[in-house]
Write a protein that binds this DNA or RNA. Sequence first.
DNA 1: AACTGTGAAGTTTTTCACAGCC
DNA 2: GGCTGTGAAAAACTTCACAGTT
Lengths: 210, 210
Amino acid sequence: MSGKSADVIPEIVIGRLPLYLRALRRLQNDRRRVTSSQELGERLEISSAQIRKDLSHFGGFGKQGTGYQVEFLIERLEAVLHVNKEWLVAVVGAGNLGSAISQYRGFQDRGFRIAHLFDISPNKIGARLGDFVVRPLDSLETTIRSEGIRIAMLAVPAENAQSVADQLVAAGIKAILNYAPININVPDQVQIQYIDPVTHLQRMTYYLDD
Amino acid sequence: MSGKSADVIPEIVIGRLPLYLRALRRLQNDRRRVTSSQELGERLEISSAQIRKDLSHFGGFGKQGTGYQVEFLIERLEAVLHVNKEWLVAVVGAGNLGSAISQYRGFQDRGFRIAHLFDISPNKIGARLGDFVVRPLDSLETTIRSEGIRIAMLAVPAENAQSVADQLVAAGIKAILNYAPININVPDQVQIQYIDPVTHLQRMTYYLDD
DNA sequence: AACTGTGAAGTTTTTCACAGCC
DNA sequence: GGCTGTGAAAAACTTCACAGTT
């Protein structure tokens, strides 16, 4: 199989690309111009063969005998992942979590910008939180459609997560990052990912002596 | 292979158990007493065979013809994951993120309690943040040792993450949940997990039209 | 000499499909 | 009839190992 872009890339490969990109950014930060699958692998605790094979799905990004140009590989991976542009993101839920998310500086230079913060509670609507004025949930669809926003982060209580997700989908959102600790059902063509710190903690406690 | 606890369980299986537990808690919340691998599978978008096989690693938790008792299965999974007790957790970094983490209510009834919040900045030390008074980073080791804390969440800037992780390990921490967007090296016997929302977003944008 | 890209081999993970029990 | 637990089969994923390029 040549590195042509026509074949379907396994999801598990796509999932690793952001990690490669993150590691490459660190290298770039340290003024490194060239790296190798072996160096990346050591930093990420992934085998070098794995990294080479993953990258080869998209064409030859490296040079035999030399390795990979850091800057070039970053560019290519950003293009593959479609983060060579800035995506607008809506945050729903202006509690502790939504408020922390909307103030987090780490989205900026990695392809994402938070555009709006929504909440349903009359106590919160209109309040200023960091750079945002909290908008009413029922203005979701109008805002999202008029601004062409396609990504949302969900930071509402578990009880409301499914119904808000339904509203997001109805409004045209195509990707949801769900912070509520509950599984959500969305149509196949809508992407969903989960952030639940407790699942990670529980995974680790399995390996800790009781 | 019988469901005896002697064999090594694949990590990928352990990683799914917290998801099962989370789904079961929702069922319990809805007063459901019994469920099936099929029902769980539909909610989690995992095949029923997968769920049965995963659970069978730990012995027969279900009844043929009947399914799984929700309460009983929760108990068993909590025991397997060692969350049938409350773990104390230290949070390092009292910025926006660390502060949000330490105020998040969602750890409470899932096996974890945040015990302390540390920071290195003199501006923050001594400040009251929610239920916590921010402690100096250099009191880390004493506090962690004297209270037997084994889990930490890392919410410091990427630049400092490795050095703080080293301090945590030196202090006797056995599991680290790293919120900084950088890979960290820790000894083999120390668990590490990562939370980086941007990697999830980038994974989804791959599937969105440019 | 160093390192990529890649078929082939090896390993792990998932699914199938059904015997056995409620 | 409905559902689990599980060997066996299938599929997916990772590693090996080396030809080929700089």
